[in-house]
Amino acid sequence: MISTSKYYAAAIKSALLAVLILCTYSCSNNDSEPTGDGEAHWKISSTVKSVSGSSAIILSGEPGTRWYAELTEGAEWCSFSSKDFANAKTKNGQLADGLNVLYVYYKANTGKLQRHAQLTLRYAENPEKTFDLIQLAESEELLPAFNIWAELPAKVDNSNYQYVTHYGLLNNKTLRNYSICFDKTKKAALWVAYPIHDVYTTKNIPDRTNRWAFDPTIPISAQANCVEYSYKGSYDRGHQVASADRVCTDEMNAQTFYMSNMTPQASSLNGAMWGTLESRVRTNSCSDTLYVVTGAYFENDNTTTFDGAGNLVPIPTHYFKVLLRTINGKTGKKIEDCAPEELKSIGFWVEHKAYSGGIPTEICKSVKEIETKTGFTFFPKVAASVKEQNAPRDWGIN
């Protein structure tokens, strides 16, 4: 017969053993690696220049999550190591607190054609994500296709101007995002030209990226520095091609936050009438494509402010937009193949000030008038009669 003291001692041991087992099970569960899926995006762009360099993919998710990356195409000129292009075709790691970056290094492209690489990224046991990298040939170098794309103004030779086109990947195709004429003396683009179509404005991202960054194709010293902070005073980082015009991919939206697309724009204009005008422009999108040029005009340099880093920058005295599309909207024709009576155009000349109400008809001008004011030639392949039009009601403005 077991004594009472021995009985209680055995019971206590059993209870302690049960608690120990439960604690061990609980701790093992708490210490297990996270299995959730993470996020990833190119930091700058999936399209790079012909010279050798590196591009970064930003990784995010629960700290401790394991990730695995593999180069599946282009391994002969891409690598996860800057020193070993022969063997560094795979890489893995664990997400840490703070910034997590996966660098992809690439050799110079000495050929005459652009080339394509592809890599996969997987978090834990989740499905793979695919990333494409396009490296341009030296002959391309991100220059706008003047005399080919309908939205581009005629080129003006000026040593202070730099012309650039940004591209992005959409449905495994490289598409132009927008082109700019950047004036290094103004630290701003004098015009930004871009197409508007459902392929660009159909929303496939949860929200705007807000990834303010320097344009990687323009010298940083020539750009306003509003990466961390906006312009001083009551001025916003005003987009020329709007973020809402590019919601098809994370990459294309992020490119609208380049400093080369910004000007110091009064909050009272940017957050009111200018935003209304941008929305109105988008409602005129069509199957044939709407072609838009948005620009900043500096009548003088009398008004200035400081960028986020304290550097002096001039403030535009005016903004403008010029629009072109087919009247029908679904002809299936290129602009150059259309007769003048098949096309419509309009311009907007906006003084840099606050406006009350909606879009005032007095800002509506003909494209020809905007050409006279700015000195640029817009839609150079279009007949003069088309550029003399000024019919606000045809564009939904009363």
Rank of each mutant, 00 (worst) to 15 (best):
F85I: 07
A339V: 12
K368V: 02
G53A: 08
G308D: 09
N284S: 10
K344W: 10
T4S: 09
P264S: 06
E73G: 02
W212Y: 13
M252P: 00
G308I: 01
A88H: 07
K333P: 01
A296W: 01
R115L: 01
P314Q: 05
L143C: 09
S221G: 14
L16R: 00
K6L: 07
D288E: 04
R282A: 08
T361P: 04
P144E: 04
N177V: 13
G38M: 02
K49A: 15
R66P: 12
I2E: 01
V247W: 04
T201Q: 06
T201P: 04
M262Y: 04
A383P: 03
I397L: 08
F379P: 03
E73D: 13
T35L: 04
E299D: 15
T130F: 15
T331Q: 11
N390T: 10
I196P: 14
F320Y: 15
M252G: 00
Y103N: 14
C23F: 05
Q135C: 06
T24A: 11
E128W: 00
K13C: 13
R246A: 09
Y229H: 14
S60M: 08
K387F: 02
V51A: 15
Y355T: 00
Y68V: 01
D31N: 12
P63A: 11
V382M: 02
A124M: 08
T24M: 05
L99V: 13
T209S: 07
M262A: 13
A18K: 01
I58R: 12
K13H: 03
M262Q: 14
I397P: 00
P340L: 06
G64S: 11
F146T: 03
E128T: 11
E151G: 00
T72F: 02
Y106W: 13
S14H: 05
L175V: 15
S179P: 06
G310W: 00
D337C: 02
V199L: 15
D198I: 05
L71K: 08
C286M: 11
C226T: 12
S230A: 15
K107N: 00
P392Y: 11
I196Y: 07
K373P: 06
I218L: 14
Y123S: 06
V48A: 03
P316V: 06
R176E: 02
T276N: 14
T4H: 10
K334M: 09
E388D: 12
I21C: 02
E138Q: 09
Y103G: 03
G238H: 05
A354L: 05
E62Y: 08
A75R: 15
V382D: 03
P392E: 09
G64M: 05
N204R: 11
F257Q: 08
